[in-house]
Lab assay of single mutants.
Amino acid sequence: HTVDVQGVTYHFDNPEEARKFAEEMAKRLGLQVHVKDGRYKVE
């Protein structure tokens, strides 16, 4: 499970961890979480 944050890619084994990380980063950076091709993108 992959999370892209402003061009940096993070990998997680656990989909729940990936989702939480994406939401946390989006909140911290004031950005949105998009799901695209099964990847989380924070932009």
Rank of each mutant, 00 (worst) to 15 (best):
N14R: 08
Y40I: 15
R28D: 06
H1V: 08
A18P: 01
H34K: 11
V42A: 02
E16F: 10
V3N: 00
P15Y: 05
V42P: 04
R19A: 08
T2G: 07
H34A: 08
K36H: 13
D37Y: 02
E24F: 11
G30P: 00
H1R: 10
V35S: 06
E43D: 14
N14M: 10
A26R: 02
E16S: 10
V35P: 02
T2S: 13
A22I: 01
M25K: 05
A22H: 00
V33H: 02
K27G: 07
D4Q: 09
F21Q: 02
P15L: 08
Y40T: 08
H11W: 13
E43L: 07
Q6K: 10
M25D: 01
F21V: 03
V8F: 11
K41L: 15
E16P: 05
G38L: 04
K41Y: 15
G7T: 04
K36L: 09
K36M: 10
A26G: 07
G7H: 06
H34Y: 08
G7Y: 04
V5E: 00
D13V: 10
Q6S: 08
K36V: 15
A18I: 01
K41D: 09
R19S: 07
V42W: 01
P15F: 05
V8K: 13
V3F: 00
V35C: 14
V8T: 12
M25T: 12
N14P: 02
E16G: 09
D13M: 08
Y10W: 08
R39H: 15
H1D: 06
P15E: 14
V3W: 00
E17F: 07
K27L: 11
G7E: 06
L31R: 03
R28M: 13
K20R: 13
L29G: 02
F12T: 01
V42R: 00
K36P: 01
V35Q: 07
K20M: 13
N14L: 10
L31K: 03
F12V: 02
Q32D: 07
D37W: 01
H1Y: 12
E23F: 15
L31Q: 04
T9A: 10
K27S: 11
H11C: 14
Y40G: 05
V33L: 07
V5F: 05
V8W: 07
F12N: 00
K20W: 10
K20N: 13
T2M: 14
N14V: 09
K27C: 15
E16Y: 10
T2P: 14
G38V: 02
K36D: 11
G7S: 05
E17R: 07
E17N: 11
V35G: 10
E16D: 12
A26N: 01
D13I: 09
Q32W: 05
V5T: 03
V42G: 03
T9P: 08
R39N: 15
K27H: 11
E43K: 04
L29W: 04
K20L: 13
K20S: 13
K27N: 09
K41Q: 15
V8I: 13
A26Y: 01
A26C: 05
M25Q: 11
R19W: 08
L31G: 08
V33P: 02
A22V: 02
A26W: 01
D13C: 14
A18Y: 00
G7R: 04
Y40F: 14
P15G: 14
H11I: 14
L29E: 03
P15T: 12
D4R: 05
E24V: 09
H34Q: 11
H1S: 13
A18V: 02
A18E: 00
M25S: 09
H34R: 09
M25N: 06
A26H: 01
V8N: 10
G30M: 04
V35L: 12
R19F: 10
R28W: 07
D13N: 11
Y40Q: 04
V33G: 01
K20F: 12
L31I: 04
T2D: 12
R39T: 08
G38E: 05
R19L: 13
R28I: 12
K41H: 15
L29D: 03
V5Y: 04
Y10T: 06
R39G: 15
N14K: 11
D13T: 12
Y10C: 10
H1N: 12
T2R: 09
M25V: 09
H34T: 15
E24Q: 11
E16A: 10
G30S: 05
V5G: 03
R19V: 06
L29P: 02
E17V: 09
E24I: 09
K27E: 12
D37F: 03
V5D: 00
D37P: 02
K27V: 09
H11M: 13
F21P: 00
Y10S: 05
E23M: 11
E23A: 07
P15W: 07
G30W: 02
H1C: 15
E24A: 11
V5S: 04
A22N: 00
E17Q: 12
R19Y: 08
E24S: 12
A26Q: 02
E24W: 10
N14G: 12
D4I: 07
D37V: 02
A22F: 01
Q6D: 07
G38M: 03
L29F: 06
E17S: 12
H34F: 08
M25R: 05
A26V: 01
T9L: 14
Q6P: 03
R39W: 09
G38S: 04
E23Q: 09
V35N: 05
D4G: 04
H1M: 12
M25C: 15
V33Y: 05
G30I: 02
Q32F: 08
R28T: 08
A18Q: 04
N14H: 13
E17T: 10
D37H: 05
A22G: 03
R28A: 12
V35E: 11
V35I: 12
K41C: 15
V42N: 02
K41I: 15
D4Y: 07
T2A: 14
V42Y: 02
E43S: 09
G38F: 03
F21G: 01
N14S: 14
E17Y: 07
K36A: 09
L31T: 05
Y10V: 06
F12I: 02
F21W: 07
V3A: 03
G7Q: 05
E23K: 06
R39K: 14
L31N: 02
Y10P: 01
D13H: 09
E16M: 11
